[in-house]
């Protein structure tokens, strides 16, 4: 049995895999204009915002974030919910509360929407597109800051993508 074609195929497969691994995939997704809000005086938590661009032809998603500057980072989304629409429809965390924690509008008062914050498991970045983390939308919460950041400080953050790659981010405190 002639095994040469099989060996050649194996060689090509390995070579392709190696070339793929060596490709600069980190550059496929980049983050810029990252900034952190100066935390309130009584708090050691703050919000992180940025623009994330995906230069690849495949959709990507940020699945987690980490930083040596804080104990825990979480991805959150601010959403507007209309009280009239029943908040229970917005997600598991928005189930109708018990114990009278809800203040419903009086029937003779004008309708006013509410802003709420919901943790999210990923932030999607469309292929050849971008996502902007900004007030009133997505943000990354930094909980348990290890020191109080001052205006102009730079803080390193790492984003982890769903393809296993990471994206370094330098955020400026504003």
């Amino acid at each position: 049995m002639n095994t040469r074609p099989v060996r050649l195929s194996m060689f090509l497969l390995v070579a392709l895999a190696s070339a793929s691994a060596a490709a600069p995939q980190q550059d496929a997704v980049v983050a810029h204009d990252a900034w952190i809000r100066v935390p309130a005086p009584s708090k050691m938590d703050t919000a992180l915002y940025m623009v994330i661009e995906n230069h690849s032809s495949q959709p990507k998603a940020v699945v987690s974030a980490s930083s040596g500057a804080a104990a825990k980072l979480e991805m959150h989304e601010m959403k507007t919910v209309n009280k009239d629409d029943s908040m229970g429809k917005s997600g598991d965390s928005m189930n109708k509360p018990s114990g009278g924690d809800s203040m419903a509008m009086s029937a003779d008062k004008p309708s006013q929407s509410m802003m709420t914050m919901t943790p999210v498991s990923k932030i999607e970045i469309p292929a050849n597109g971008k996502v902007t983390l900004a007030p009133n939308g997505f943000h990354i919460m930094m909980f348990g800051l290890k020191s109080r950041p001052a205006m102009g400080d730079k803080i390193n953050v790492t984003l982890k993508l769903d393809d296993g790659t990471t994206v370094p981010v330098v955020a400026t405190v504003k």
Binding site: M87, S102, M103, Q112, M114
Partner: peptide, 9 residues
Amino acid sequence: GASYEIVPL
């Protein structure tokens, strides 16, 4: 005529 709601996380 405002409103608020505690959201457990």
